[in-house]
Simulated scan of single mutants.
Amino acid sequence: MATPKLGWVIYNGHLGGKKFLDFAEWIQRAAHANGMEMKIIKNNALLAIVGTDSSILIKEKELPDFVVFSDKDIPLAQQLEAMGVPLFNSSKSIAVCDNKILMYQALSEAGIRIPKTIIAPKIFPGTLPIQLETFAPAISELGFPVIIKEAFGSFGEQVYLVHNKAQLHQKITEIGTEPFVLQEYIQSSHGRDIRINVVGGKVVASMIRTSETDFRANVSRGGSMQQYTPNAKEAQLAIAAAAAVGTDFAGVDLLFGPEGEPLVCEVNSNAHIRSIYDCTGVDVSVPIISYIKEVLS
């Protein structure tokens, strides 16, 4: 009889709140149901040693056969991969999804439909004030209202809707030297989007999210959710987007385009799965573990 696979699910030990441990516990439960041993490990319990004998300082007696990496600690993910441990998702895909600039570039390179997006020039610390006239061509190209998205942010945070030049200049000044993009505002999708969970190139769950009070439909910002069956075009787009950024599993957010054509808002490599379970009854951890088991067999 084959020895059961040993897995780790890694989450960020410094973050408060239940939601980050919550995902790890669901993954652990699904793994145990599939005859796998799964340990929940905090990222700050693993200290990477870089050098001629690259390794990790850990209390565990043996390395896992695989890791479900539910954090954004990219150097730690890379270290584990360098030591020969398969990661789901890979360090590269997490890094791409974590940085919206890299994500939109990857989607665009793959021919995925996204809102028109302009990357703000890099600004080094200590070089303020920002030369706001730099953004005049972007205003001419995108018009108002316009979306500003910081490159790093989750749960709809660090995403802003601005209506005029004064608001734009104020927000850019507040952002300072953080990287960001300017993005076309999709009026037809105001306060609503579709979240599609893709695992192993297949749609496993989907919901529509709506907000009466915010241009963002995130449930964490008070949006409501309803079970939704994507049409063939929406499903194909979500699957293609998840593949374009290299994820094994992802939460793909789609916008309703002005002529009924879906657009990719973003791809989340570390999407939480409780909300979609509450909405649809689908426990996404189950297909995630089934997919990993199939890949490792």
Rank of each mutant, 00 (worst) to 15 (best):
M1Y: 03
P4M: 03
L6R: 15
I10E: 04
Y11E: 10
N12K: 11
G13H: 03
H14A: 11
G16C: 00
K19A: 04
F20A: 02
Q28T: 07
R29L: 14
A30W: 09
A30V: 08
H32I: 15
H32M: 14
A33K: 15
N34E: 13
E37N: 09
M38S: 01
M38P: 02
L46V: 00
L47Q: 11
T52E: 12
D53W: 01
S55C: 07
I56A: 03
I58C: 12
E60G: 09
F66N: 04
I74Y: 02
A82F: 05
V85E: 02
S91I: 01
S91P: 05
K92N: 08
A95Y: 10
A95L: 07
V96N: 09
V96K: 10
C97A: 13
D98G: 10
K100Y: 06
K100H: 05
L102N: 10
A106M: 09
A106H: 05
E109G: 07
K116C: 00
K116D: 05
I118E: 13
I119C: 10
I119G: 04
K122M: 15
K122S: 06
I123Y: 10
T127P: 08
T127A: 10
I130M: 13
I130K: 09
Q131M: 08
A136V: 13
I139E: 15
I147N: 05
E150Q: 14
F152L: 11
G153P: 07
F155H: 14
Q158I: 00
V159C: 05
L161P: 02
A166M: 13
A166W: 03
Q167W: 02
L168H: 08
H169T: 06
Q170L: 06
Q170M: 10
K171E: 15
I175N: 07
E178P: 00
E178W: 03
P179G: 11
P179F: 08
F180Q: 03
F180T: 02
E184M: 04
E184C: 08
I186N: 01
I186A: 01
H190V: 02
H190N: 15
G191S: 11
R192T: 11
I194P: 00
I196E: 05
I196S: 04
G201D: 01
G201S: 04
K202R: 14
A205N: 03
S206P: 06
S206T: 13
M207P: 02
I208W: 06
R209W: 00
T210I: 11
S211L: 03
D214A: 00
D214R: 01
D214N: 15
A217R: 09
G222C: 04
M225N: 13
Y228V: 05
Y228P: 06
T229Q: 15
P230R: 03
P230Q: 02
N231Q: 04
A232H: 11
A232C: 06
K233R: 12
L237W: 05
L237P: 02
A238N: 10
A240M: 08
A250L: 02
G251Y: 05
L254G: 00
G260N: 10
L263F: 15
E266F: 08
S269E: 07
N270T: 14
I273F: 00
S275M: 12
D283Q: 06
V286Q: 13
K293T: 13
S297K: 15
